[in-house]
């Protein structure tokens, strides 16, 4: 959503004469974003979305403050200390993208005990007192194989590119892919490498394993690695398989190029970095006294052959396809979970 639309929406909200109390209720509340990592384009887009949406919300007085804090080292201990600081600084709610699903539970418990609302998203925490906006990572892996089964009914060889070893999200998406392969048994995974969600790492890993692999019919990915895989496969002079993309602009642009050149078809799936703004509105709703279930699910963002051009147009050069969520989106997600 563009700023102008945001403005319009907020003006509209005010104009309809929504009960002033609904806004006044949280107008003195302060929300903090505790973020564990900022070193890639997805996280940068996440922070930009946060700034955009919360900046607007603060200026129209929905909340008093919405500050973003990022730890330098992507360590759970560091983030735990950060959360303790945020409690001491008297924030009313902490929106959290956690370095670990379990290691922050102690700090999150302290926050709950101090009366601070904790809403975790993307990197969620298991502590029961916190809210969770989870992404169905397994499903994100499974739909890739399902899509491929539609494209190549007779099946074939898959190359799996995984994320960062030892991270919960990597295990989940990979489990989903393997579940998909079990379901559509005409596919087999003939190679698996770790691309660390980075194009250059994926490119190197794929280039190293490719010479020893048989023909590859499709590449299943986790996002941020499809373009690197395509580069490596092109360099090896192989036929281009169906590479599932992960919504990065370079991936979509490459897809578009291939489509124009030879009718290349694929799909792209990932989580919109703007999920941080959904978490913001959920936190605002909880502060507003709304009854919100602890576990919410956010849909992932899929780009298909038909929406390719549109996605390419709206995605900033070098960035990630994104949506920013509105208060109404948050209400819809909450209603769906009830």
């Amino acid at each position: 959503m563009k700023i102008s639309q945001m403005l319009l929406a907020s003006v509209a909200v005010l104009a309809i004469g929504m009960p002033a109390a609904a806004i006044a209720d949280t107008s003195d509340k302060r929300i903090a974003l505790s973020n564990n990592y900022a070193g890639n384009s997805w996280r940068q887009a996440m922070l930009t979305s946060w700034e955009l949406v919360t900046g607007e919300a603060v200026s129209v007085g929905v909340v008093a403050a919405a500050d973003a804090f990022t730890t330098a080292e992507n360590q759970a201990t560091e983030q735990a200390a950060q959360i303790q600081n945020l409690i001491l600084q008297g924030y009313d709610a902490i929106v959290l993208n956690a370095a670990s699903p379990t290691a922050l539970n102690g700090a999150v418990r302290e926050a709950c005990d101090a009366g601070v609302i904790v809403v975790s998203f993307d990197g969620i925490v298991t502590e029961p007192c916190a809210w969770r906006i989870a992404v169905e990572f397994r499903e994100m892996g499974r739909v890739q194989v399902e899509y491929l089964a539609g494209r190549i009914p007779e099946g074939g060889n898959l190359l799996e590119i995984r994320g960062l070893a030892g991270v919960f999200v990597d295990d989940e998406i990979s489990a989903g892919i393997h579940q998909g392969v079990a379901e559509f048994s005409q596919f087999q995974i003939v190679g698996s490498v770790h691309g660390d969600w980075a194009q250059d790492v994926a490119q190197r890993a794929v280039a190293g394993v490719l010479p020893s692999l048989p023909q590859i019919d499709a590449v299943v990915t986790q996002g941020g690695d499809g373009y690197g895989a395509a580069q490596a496969i092109a360099a090896a002079g192989r036929d281009m398989p169906i590479i599932i993309m992960g919504n990065r602009q370079d991936e979509i642009a490459w897809w578009k190029e291939q489509k124009d050149a030879n009718g290349y078809e694929t799909m792209s799936v990932s989580i919109a970095p703007g999920v941080s703004t959904l978490a913001f509105w959920v936190a605002q709703q909880i502060l507003d006294g709304e009854d919100v279930p602890q576990d919410l699910v956010v849909p992932f963002l899929t780009i298909t052959q038909d929406t390719l051009e549109e996605a390419l147009e709206t995605t900033p050069e070098g960035g990630v396809a994104n949506v920013e969520y509105s208060l109404d989106d948050a209400k819809a997600v909450i209603a769906a979970a009830k």
Binding site: A38, G39, N40, S41, Q44, D196, A198, Q199, D200, V201, Q203, Y227, G228, Q231, D250, G318
Partner: peptide
């Protein structure tokens, strides 16, 4: 050269 090779500079590209 790494940025030229892999189609652009990424914030985490030197990590390894």
């Amino acid at each position: 050269f790494l940025a030229s090779f892999s189609g652009g500079a990424a914030l985490n590209m030197g990590a390894e």
